[in-house]
Amino acid sequence: MSDIGSRTEPGKRTLRRELLAARNGLTVDDVRQAARSLARRALELPELARARTVAAYVSVGAEPGTLVLLDALRERGVRVLLPALLPDNDLDWGAYTGEGSLARVQHGGRMALFEPAGRRLGPDAVTAADAVLLPGLAVDARGLRLGRGGGSYDRVLARLERADAHPALVVLLYDSEVVAHVPEEPHDRPVQAVVTPSGVRRFT
């Protein structure tokens, strides 16, 4: 399901480089302040207000911060699922029960990820989620998301489709990452909303 090698990949690679360079220019304070604003905006979403199970992820580096939001969801009594990267780039899932339930995992030469340290629930656990918070680098006016190119979340979205599961799909980004156009491929699926530090934008 990876988009590597496709016709639109050169355009995606260029856009990814530009967006990652912008993120790398952020200070620790920039990231921390944005994380608080993101959590506040996301918690106002009706899709999260009524969710019993949310599949999310732990941000790393200069990604829009998620830990404040994860803890706030737990305080509401929401069951939070977090991914664990498998060798084939698919995702397994485990429950988040606080920062103490996370393990720092190094996957080869990539950036280390924070994954659930407890029992694995299997790749299909995501199909029980009422909302899925997706990482990304950009989203466009159609709701098409640009990921990092590994294909992990393409697999998640395909799994949801096969299971006829229809959770709310929400991407968390910085304001500047809502762009006019993202190169499109046949397997791409739009999200319903993007949350940025300044607000929420919905897509039809």
Rank of each mutant, 00 (worst) to 15 (best):
S2K: 15
P186Q: 07
D3P: 13
V126Y: 05
A21V: 00
D130W: 06
G147F: 14
T66C: 15
L144M: 14
D29W: 13
R16H: 06
R13V: 09
L137F: 09
G98K: 01
V139K: 00
P46V: 11
R104P: 06
L73T: 13
Y57Q: 00
Q192R: 00
L26Q: 10
A180R: 01
L134C: 15
P190H: 01
R110Q: 12
V200D: 04
A112D: 10
P83K: 12
S37E: 15
V126D: 09
R41P: 01
G61A: 11
T27L: 12
D124N: 11
L48P: 08
P64A: 07
L169N: 03
A39Y: 01
Y57F: 05
R40S: 04
F114W: 14
D188N: 05
V191N: 03
F203L: 13
A72D: 05
L20H: 01
N89G: 06
M1R: 10
A103E: 12
A95Y: 05
R36V: 11
G77C: 07
R52D: 12
A35D: 10
L113M: 10
Y153Q: 02
L133F: 05
A128H: 14
R32T: 09
R23G: 15
A49Q: 06
A141W: 00
R145V: 15
R16P: 07
R76W: 02
F203H: 00
A158I: 04
R189K: 12
N89F: 15
L121W: 03
R162M: 03
V195I: 02
K12P: 06
R110K: 15
L169Q: 02
G149M: 13
L144P: 08
L19K: 05
S152A: 08
L82S: 05
R13L: 11
R40Q: 14
A42N: 14
V195Y: 02
R202C: 10
N24I: 01
D140S: 01
A131E: 12
R13G: 03
E18W: 10
L15I: 15
G94V: 13
D154E: 07
P167V: 03
Q192M: 09
Y153N: 01
A84L: 11
D29R: 08
L102P: 07
A62R: 10
R74I: 08
N24R: 14
T8L: 10
G143I: 06
G98P: 12
G143E: 13
G100I: 09
E185G: 07
F114K: 14
G61Q: 05
L121M: 13
E185N: 02
Y57M: 03
L86R: 10
E184Q: 09
L169E: 06
H166N: 11
A163V: 01
P87Q: 04
L172M: 09
R40G: 08
E99M: 11
V126L: 07
G65P: 04
D124M: 11
N24S: 11
R41T: 08
R79Y: 12
V58K: 03
G61E: 07
